[in-house]
């Protein structure tokens, strides 16, 4: 008899597949939030394992800020074509026009928080009752408190008082009309787990995650890609060998100096680093101590 126990990646994988299938079993109109980053790519891989040979019981939904790296968008389109699933794209630019929103300006201006409007509009447009996301609890302390099935109120807000106790692996994804749940199948994964899984499964990720030469400017100690999207100030553009630890908007995601050109090298780099993932790269979290908490309360991913 096979009495072997699962190793940690198999256990995390099994847990995530179980969560995805609970969404399919409990929710009527779910969608998978896809950003083109490694965490959402892993989610797609897990969904293939959960539902093949059938089709996904949900579309992929990308909220495009218009400030994405071109490599990310190309990768997204190739992936969607390969798996033959439905992709919905909604553009922050359209929301800005339609709702006459004011774009932030000045230093570190970013459309990061404007995504919330587009996301909540899309949730309403498609009457979504569940949005699957790739957020992990190890990323940030507000996310450390997140449930796997996390209720959002009718205004799309994360109301800590609505959070349900989550016992065993029994998930309650029922919501009242107008509310929805955010579901996080890889809650219990760390950045390292994600990379070790990518390695084991041979999952393809955008080349931005590996060391490459790029023109950057230094802003407050962070290396930002030159893009013409934000005022560069007096800083001169320099060429550096860098990679991205997270892929978000070009305006708020920094590159890190790196020589790691393969998945194995990235794993070695992560084992040695003393700086956290978001600490190294995310200007959006460094605005204040509770920056993520504030965005989550309003309906952020």
């Amino acid at each position: 008899m096979g009495t072997h126990t699962l190793d940690y990646l198999e256990e995390l994988e099994s847990e995530a597949i179980h969560i995805l299938r609970e969404v399919a079993g409990q929710c009527e109109r779910p969608a998978l939030l896809f950003s083109g980053g490694k965490d959402s790519i892993v989610l797609v891989h897990l969904a293939l394992k959960a539902f093949r040979p059938g089709t996904f019981p949900f579309p992929l939904l990308h909220i495009d800020t218009g400030h994405n790296f071109q490599e990310t968008l190309d990768f997204r389109d190739q992936l969607v074509e390969r798996i033959g699933e439905r992709l919905i794209v909604r553009h922050v630019e359209d929301t800005i026009q339609a709702k006459a929103l004011t774009e932030p300006s000045g230093r570190f201006a970013s459309r990061n928080t404007l995504q919330i409007h587009t996301l909540l509009d899309a949730i309403q447009e498609f009457s979504l009752d569940a949005c699957i996301g790739g957020a992990r609890r190890d990323e940030e302390k507000a996310r450390a408190k997140e449930r796997v099935f996390s209720v959002r109120d009718a205004a799309g807000q994360w109301n800590p008082n609505l959070q349900r106790p989550e016992l065993w692996s029994t998930y309650n994804g029922r919501v009242q009309k107008g509310q929805h749940v955010r579901v996080f199948p890889i809650s219990n994964w760390t950045e390292l787990d994600v990379w070790e899984y990518i390695q084991r499964e041979g999952i393809e990720v955008p080349a931005l995650y590996f060391a490459h030469e790029r023109e950057v400017v230094e802003q407050q100690g962070q290396l930002m890609a030159t893009s013409g999207l934000f005022p560069q100030g007096a800083a001169a553009a320099i060429r550096r060998r860098v990679r991205y630890r997270t892929i978000g908007d070009m305006t708020c995601t920094a590159a890190v100096p790196s020589e790691a050109a393969t998945v194995a090298a990235v794993i070695q780099e992560l084992l040695a680093t003393r700086v956290s993932e978001r600490g190294a790269t995310r200007l959006d979290d460094q605005l204040s101590e509770a920056a993520m908490e504030d965005r989550k309360l309003k309906g952020y991913f």
Binding site: R137, K141, A144, K145, P160, P165, N188, T190
Partner: peptide
Amino acid sequence: GLRAEREQGITIDVAYKYFS
């Protein structure tokens, strides 16, 4: 804890930490 917990005197039941 979170600012919301401190300010509103509420408790979000369980937080999770990871180490290996």
